[in-house]
């Protein structure tokens, strides 16, 4: 059986940003569900931990929020990506890809490749 991974706060923030980027404005539960679906239940995140992350992103100006009607017509708080959030996502994505690429290269190296 595959083990579930704990998740670092920074990574969770990146996931939130990407989710909002792909799906547009979403409430907290929606974001939680989406992250769960995409990560294929590999992640063990208490859904509650999402909310401090959302607050933090909002304080940083990466996302904004407003009350709005949910699918079943109740009041829910919807989060959306701001322009600054877009930029942040791009930058983080770039960083992440770079890190991943470097790590990947390290894994590909075999002993005989080294001079």
């Amino acid at each position: 059986m595959k083990q579930k991974k704990d998740v670092q706060q920074g990574t969770l923030a990146l996931m939130v940003l990407k989710t909002l980027d792909v799906l547009g404005p979403l409430h907290g539960y929606g974001i939680a569900r989406r992250i769960e679906q995409i990560s294929g239940a590999l992640l063990s995140v208490n859904q509650g931990t999402l909310y401090p992350v959302l607050l933090r992103l909002e304080q940083e100006g990466a996302i904004a929020s407003d009350w709005g009607p949910s699918e079943n017509n109740r009041r829910a708080r919807f989060y959306r990506l701001t322009r600054a959030g877009h930029k942040l996502l791009e930058a983080e994505k770039h960083d992440w890809e770079q890190t991943a690429a470097i790590i990947a290269r390290f894994f590909e190296v075999k002993a005989e490749d080294l001079p």
């Binding site: 907290g28 607050l55 949910s70």
Partner: peptide
């Protein structure tokens, strides 16, 4: 304090999950 807002969001969240 954002306690009121958090409480409301949490309640909403739980309701949605329960329905699911």
């Amino acid at each position: 304090r954002g306690d009121q807002r958090l409480r409301e969001e949490m309640e909403e969240h739980l309701t949605m999950q329960t329905e699911e």
